[in-house]
């Protein structure tokens, strides 16, 4: 980023792995029996991030929109899988809906941020587009997962009340209005908590990263504000799309529960 950046080499990484060994020793001393799992997830972290680093290096080098789009497409598929995996109740087509919610929120919010706010040049510049959209995906994943889970669970818990509205002639949107609102609200709780605590309880990850990479603190703050608003919008858009799609799956257009 600039001349202040202290580069990490392989020796630094080996030293940092000593920290994991400390955690492993604690596990052995206290009989936590998580030593093996700790070792496995550490290896997984190194392999996954190493792989991502290699892929990003290639994509950055190619400087073409197609590899960027391809990588983002794969990321949306994994994000959708992860979001749906966190819901307890499923329905047919839930993966497709999760993917759609993720992709649309990513495109809408990511489009506004990269093209409108940051003004990335060229428009697909992987150095900006991939991390920003990755952050949008990672966070709208939370919104989608929480929103969907809440919606489907309250649907089961409130079936009688929904039918009560239906027998008096409620349309689908009338019958599910309160449930939808509650579900989207639930999807937004984590980001609202983060926004309220930002800078006071913790320094958000991206800002910390930028400061470490040598950015002036005020620039890092500006980026972090954009990121916070972007995440809130992505959460809201993702949760809303997922819940709207789910409501058309669980109740037909004639307001009959399926």
């Amino acid at each position: 980023m600039n001349g202040n950046l202290i580069e990490l080499d392989y020796i630094d990484l080996v030293i940092s792995s000593g920290l994991i060994i400390v955690a492993g020793l604690i596990s052995i001393l206290l009989g936590l029996k998580i030593g093996k799992r700790l070792l496995l997830v550490s290896i997984r972290t190194v392999l996954q991030l190493g792989l991502v680093g290699l892929i990003l290096k290639q994509v950055f080098a190619m400087a073409h929109p197609l590899p960027v789009a391809g990588l983002l497409f794969i990321m949306t598929i994994f994000a959708a899988r992860e979001a749906v995996a966190r819901t307890k109740r499923r329905y047919k087509g839930i993966y497709l809906d999760g993917w759609l919610a993720m992709t649309l929120s990513c495109l809408v919010v990511g489009g506004v941020v990269t093209q409108g706010v940051v003004g990335v040049q060229p428009w697909f510049s992987p150095r900006y587009v991939i991390p920003l959209l990755g952050m949008i995906l990672g966070n709208s994943l939370t919104g989608v997962a929480l929103g969907l889970d809440r919606f489907l669970q309250s649907l089961d818990a409130n079936r009688e009340q929904i039918e009560l509205l239906v027998v008096f002639g409620a349309s689908r949107s009338e019958a599910l209005r309160d449930l939808r609102a509650e579900a989207v609200r639930t999807g937004l709780i984590p980001i609202m908590n983060s926004m309220a605590a930002a800078g006071i309880v913790s320094l958000p990850g991206m800002m910390t990263g930028q400061i470490l990479a040598g950015s002036p603190p005020l620039q890092a703050v500006a980026y972090q504000i954009v990121v916070m608003f972007m995440i809130a919008a992505a959460d809201a858009v993702g949760a809303m799309i997922a819940v709207m799609k789910a409501s058309t799956r669980v109740m037909d257009s004639q307001a009959k529960l399926v």
Binding site: E160, L164, V166, V167, F168, G169, S171
Partner: peptide
């Protein structure tokens, strides 16, 4: 829904 608003079921 219009039919149901005219023919109401008390469950």
């Amino acid at each position: 829904p219009v039919w149901r608003s005219r023919v109401v079921l008390l469950a």
